[in-house]
Write a protein that binds this DNA or RNA. Structure first.
Lengths: 122, 122
DNA sequence: TCAATACTTGCATATTTGCGCAAATGTGCT
DNA sequence: AGCACATTTGCGCAAATATGCAAGTATTGA
């Protein structure tokens, strides 16, 4: 059993569980961040076309960005008729941020933190 | 004056101030995350060679990763003799994570969140 | 049924990125 | 000075990524 302890927000966590490259990678693009920002301030879920207005990218690119954010768990999608409404995964997102912060604080100089593997081939 | 309010952690913040692509990009690589994890659990600052053990990458690659993390403000470096000791920017890191979480929570459906520009040309 | 609308996906292209190797730089030691 | 060790940097390559355009798939409405 690895050393863990109650965090500020009352969860148990291990650092590496929060260190997901794909998650950060999803947020590591200016246009995707613009999309996230746009969704964060939206009163309600937005369609792809609506979201598209926030960055000067072709609608197909926006669609791809949203798909990627969805795959990373940053946003959620719901298909309604011929349109798809995207919204920020609010609690997951803030939960991940605070969880990671807590995990870093709670990190003891003993647990060997092994790298998450997910990236390129070599 | 844009709408802001005291956050859970007592700071004032705007969402876009925390949404820095370069920061997420720095953390969006498996090997760099491994490095971060390694440094997080380290009792004291580590040299490049020491850090290198945590991921199967040539030492020059590790050096580059650390330089990138440093440029992003994730780690700090101190040159001591012929070696360079890297450590996690602990408070900055957790502060950014919680600050962003707070900013997202505090985000009102009114402030237009304009995209941070930093990425590729077009 | 037909056309318009909303979104996704295949493809080609340009750019970025991660990597190893070798050379360069910097520092300590004898 | 001469040498070993630590780190950085130039270079080239292969893989990944972002993007636009065009074609494909649904779905709505006339």
């Amino acid at each position: 059993m690895t050393a863990q302890r109650k965090s500020r927000s009352g969860r148990m966590e291990t650092l590496t569980a929060w260190l997901r490259p794909g998650w950060f990678k999803a947020l590591g693009d200016p246009n995707r961040l613009a999309i996230v920002a746009r969704l964060a301030c939206a009163a309600k879920p937005m369609t792809v076309s609506e979201v598209g207005g926030c960055c000067g990218v072709h609608i197909s690119g926006v669609s791809r960005h949203l798909a990627l954010l969805r795959a990373a768990g940053v946003v959620a999608a719901e298909k309604i008729g011929r349109e798809v409404r995207y919204r920020l995964n609010l609690s997951d997102l803030t939960g991940a941020l605070r969880g990671l912060a807590d995990a870093i604080d709670a990190c003891e100089p003993s647990e060997l933190c092994n790298p998450p593997r997910e990236g390129r081939k070599k």
